[in-house]
């Protein structure tokens, strides 16, 4: 039997993989994918809580639909900005974006 804890564990692992990817990967496309992983971890959490805590109310599932929509728009903007960065710097490597320094 798969319980709530299993879902939460999967979500936590996904979230941590996402954070790890954002912190260590240097390719902007990979970073965007890692951010998607983090947001999908949230979706699993929301749907699992909704199913196991109050199966008759759909708050969590509705919330996850909003999350998916917003994540899609966020990535659309992210890719558009990526085009601009590639146009200006000829690279998608985050370390090369260093024209401003403290």
């Amino acid at each position: 039997m798969i319980s709530l804890v299993h879902y939460l564990t999967v979500a936590a692992i996904l979230f941590i993989i996402g954070v790890y990817g954002v912190l260590t990967k240097r390719n902007i496309v990979t970073i965007l994918m890692s951010i998607e992983l983090m947001l999908n971890a949230v979706n699993i959490n929301l749907v699992a809580f909704s199913r196991f805590i109050q199966p008759e109310v759909l708050t969590g599932q509705v919330f996850s639909i909003f999350t998916i929509t917003v994540a899609a728009s966020e990535v659309a903007v992210g890719l558009a900005l990526l085009f601009r960065v590639y146009h200006d710097y000829d690279t998608v490597h985050i370390d090369k974006l260093n024209r401003m320094r403290w």
């Binding site: 970073i31 900005l81 960065v85 200006d88 985050i94 024209r99």
Partner: peptide
Amino acid sequence: KSSEAGMKYMILGSV
């Protein structure tokens, strides 16, 4: 500079 700032804001803001 502007595109660089936008990209950095996008990544950090989404995280």
